[in-house]
C-alpha cells in the first residue's frame, strides 16, 4: 500500500532522495551513530577476543556452514561476544528494514518515476526484463531482503542503505568523488571511453563523467533495479551516462574498446569463478595502454587481510557477504600484475 499522499516532499540529501518522513530519517541517523559508537570502539578488542576464544576451543577458521555453526556455539557461551554480535546484527537489520519500510510507503510513486525516466535523457538505459539471472546473483547481499536483483526498488534501497557503510554521511557522493579523483588515467592521456562494471547505482561512473566531461561513460550491473535507478539518479544530476544491465563476466562490448575500466567494491561480492571471468573480460575490453582500476579489499593472503579471522567469518555469515572470504585470499594483484591493472586497496 502506498501512502504518499500523506507525505510532504522532503527533497534530496545531496544526490540521494531524503527518506519520506523526518521520523524515519532521525531513526536511521540514530542507528548510524549508535552503531559507529558501539562497534568501532570495540571492534579490535572483540576481534582479538573472538580469535583467542576460538583458539582455546581448538577451532580452525574455515569458510563453511559447519565451521560457522561451531563458532555460534562458542559465541553462545561467551556473553561478551554474544552481546557484540547481537548488537552488530540488530543494527544492520533495523537500519535496512526501516529504510525499506520507509521507501515503500511511496512505492507506487517511485515505480512511476523509474518508468518515466526510462525514455528520458541525458544518458541511456538498457535492460532485459527476461534476463537469465544466475543463481550467485540472487544472494541476499548485506542482508537486504530479496537482495539486489529481486526488488524493483533495490537501487533506491542501496542508495539510502549504504550511508551506514560510508560512515553515515556520503551526501553528494563525496566518497566516490575522491575515488574518481584518485583513479589512475592512461599514461598517454587518452580517455575517450570509460566503463564501470558492477556499478550498482553508478555513483563512481557519474563522478568519473564529471572529471572527464568529454568521455563516453558506460555503467553496467547485473541488476536491472540498480541500473534503472542509477539512470534516474544520473538524470537528476544532468549527466550523460549510459546504464546497461550486463553480467560482469559477459561484457557486451568489443575488444580493446575502453581507455579506462574500473570496478568499485564489486569483486568481494562475486564468487571466485566469476571473478576470474570478470578479470578476463575487463582486460579484453580494455585497449592496450589503458588502465583497469580495481577498488576493493586487499586480496593478498599474506597481508593479514582486514576481512580475516573471527569477525570476517561472522560478517560473511551474518552480514550477507558469502563471497568475500574467497576473494580476500585470492591474490588478485599478485596474479594479475601488469596488463593495465591498478589495484587500489582502501581497507
Amino acid at each position: 500500500m502506498t501512502q504518499s499522499n500523506y507525505f510532504v516532499d522532503r527533497g534530496m540529501n545531496g544526490n540521494t532522495p531524503a527518506l519520506p518522513s523526518r521520523a524515519d530519517e532521525s531513526f536511521v541517523d540514530y542507528v548510524c551513530e549508535a552503531r559507529n559508537t558501539l562497534l568501532h570502539a570495540r571492534w579490535k578488542q572483540m576481534g582479538d577476543h573472538g580469535n583467542e576464544t576460538l583458539k582455546k576451543h581448538d577451532i580452525k577458521i574455515e569458510h563453511s556452514a559447519d565451521c560457522v555453526e561451531q563458532v555460534r556455539d562458542v559465541i553462545a557461551g561467551d556473553m561478551e561476544l554474544a552481546s557484540f554480535m547481537r548488537i552488530k546484527r540488530s543494527y544492520q537489520e533495523i537500519y535496512k528494514d526501516r529504510i525499506i519500510g520507509s521507501i515503500n510507503t511511496q512505492r507506487d510513486d517511485w515505480l512511476r518515476k523509474l518508468d518515466e525516466a526510462e525514455t528520458t535523457g541525458p544518458g541511456s538505459l538498457t535492460y532485459d526484463p527476461d534476463f537469465p539471472m544466475p543463481d550467485y546473483a540472487k544472494v541476499q547481499i548485506h542482508i537486504q531482503p530479496r537482495g539486489y536483483v529481486g526488488d524493483d526498488l533495490a537501487g533506491l534501497y542501496y542508495d539510502c542503505g549504504t550511508q551506514i557503510f560510508f560512515g553515515g554521511n556520503n551526501a553528494g557522493d563525496a566518497w566516490h568523488r575522491e575515488l574518481a579523483e584518485r583513479t589512475a588515467l592512461p599514461e598517454d592521456g587518452k580517455v575517450d571511453r570509460i566503463l564501470e562494471i558492477g556499478c550498482s547505482v553508478g555513483q563512481l561512473a557519474c563522478e568519473l563523467k564529471k572529471r572527464n566531461t568529454d568521455a563516453e561513460v558506460w555503467a553496467t550491473d547485473i541488476s536491472a533495479p540498480m541500473v534503472r535507478y542509477g539512470h534516474w539518479r544520473a538524470i537528476q544530476q544532468d549527466l550523460d551516462v549510459n546504464f546497461a544491465q550486463m553480467a560482469s563476466e559477459a561484457l557486451e562490448f568489443p575488444d580493446n574498446h575502453f581507455d579506462l575500466v574500473t570496478a568499485h567494491i564489486l569483486f568481494h561480492e562475486i564468487p571466485r569463478p566469476v571473478i576470474e571471468k570478470t578479470l578476463a573480460e575487463a582486460l579484453r575490453v580494455l585497449r592496450p595502454g589503458g588502465t583497469f582500476v580495481l577498488w576493493d579489499f586487499s586480496s593478498a593472503s599474506d597481508e593479514k587481510p582486514g576481512y580475516g579471522g573471527f569477525l570476517g567469518l561472522m560478517d560473511s555469515a551474518d552480514n550477507g557477504e558469502p563471497y568475500a572470504p574467497g576473494f580476500v585470499t585470492m591474490e588478485v594483484e599478485k596474479n594479475h600484475r601488469g596488463y593495465g591493472l591498478c589495484y587500489s586497496v582502501y581497507w
Binding site: A65, V68, M85, S316, A317, G320
Partner: peptide
C-alpha cells in the same frame, strides 16, 4: 555458503 540467505541468527 554461509551468508547467502539472510536467516535469523541468534547469539545467546
Amino acid at each position: 555458503l554461509p551468508g547467502f540467505e539472510r536467516g535469523h541468527p541468534h547469539y545467546f
